[in-house]
Simulated scan of single mutants.
Amino acid sequence: MVYRWLADAVMVFHGAFLLFFVIGGFLAWRWRKLIWVHLAVGLYSLFNVIMDFACPLTEPEKYFRRQGGEQAYEGGYINHYLDGTLWPEGATPTAEKVGFALLIISYVGFFVTGHLRKRRTTRDGSVVTRT
């Protein structure tokens, strides 16, 4: 029972990690310091996609599933849970490109909103600079 719970906890954490990859840059528009965590997640994800290595979260989940009496799935987390569910089967490379495009869009927005926060225009046209 404990092993199945641990496997599910790792699965949920893995999903949250991937969701944060997609939306974390947008969350940083509001919580500015979050950008540093998201930058690390983005760089890790880019490295993972380029080098095509197994995510270190997948193996513990599979281990806990086996220990809990379940059969571990073949392949990686994305192929098992997302491919064919959130997007058409076999479209993972396209989904990766969309994810990285959203990352870039969120970073552009992060810098634009940061610039707008520093420079606010009052009604009479004068510029107020925040420090």
Rank of each mutant, 00 (worst) to 15 (best):
Ser106Gln: 04
Val37Tyr: 08
His14Trp: 02
Val22Tyr: 02
Tyr44Gln: 08
Val98Gln: 06
Asp124Gly: 10
Leu116Ser: 10
Ile35Leu: 14
Ala28Leu: 03
Glu89Tyr: 13
Ser106Lys: 01
Phe20Tyr: 13
Val10Gln: 03
Gly109Ala: 05
Thr94Val: 13
Ala40Ile: 13
Val127Phe: 06
Phe47Leu: 15
Ala40Cys: 11
Gly109Tyr: 02
Tyr44Ser: 04
Thr121His: 09
Gly42Glu: 06
Gly99Trp: 00
Arg66Gly: 09
Phe110Val: 07
Leu86Gln: 02
Leu43Thr: 14
Ala95Asp: 04
Glu61Cys: 02
Lys97Trp: 13
Leu27Val: 09
Ala101Glu: 07
Asp52Glu: 12
Leu82Arg: 01
Phe47Cys: 15
Ala101Phe: 14
Leu103Pro: 06
Arg66Asn: 13
Pro88Leu: 00
Arg123Gly: 15
Asn48His: 15
Lys118Cys: 08
Thr122Asp: 13
Leu34Lys: 06
Phe13Lys: 09
Trp29Lys: 01
Lys118Ala: 12
Leu39Ser: 11
Asn48Trp: 15
Glu74Ile: 08
Gly69Trp: 05
Leu82Met: 08
Arg123Val: 14
Gly125Tyr: 05
Glu96Asp: 12
Gly109Asp: 03
Val128Gln: 11
Arg117Leu: 13
Thr122His: 12
Ser126Met: 13
Asp83Arg: 05
Val41Ile: 11
Arg4Asn: 14
Gly15Leu: 08
Ala54Thr: 15
Leu116Cys: 10
Phe100Gly: 02
Leu102Asp: 06
Glu59Ser: 11
Asp52Tyr: 08
Thr58Gly: 01
Thr85Arg: 13
Leu39Arg: 09
Thr113Pro: 00
Thr121Gly: 00
Ala40Pro: 07
Arg120Gly: 00
Phe17Met: 08
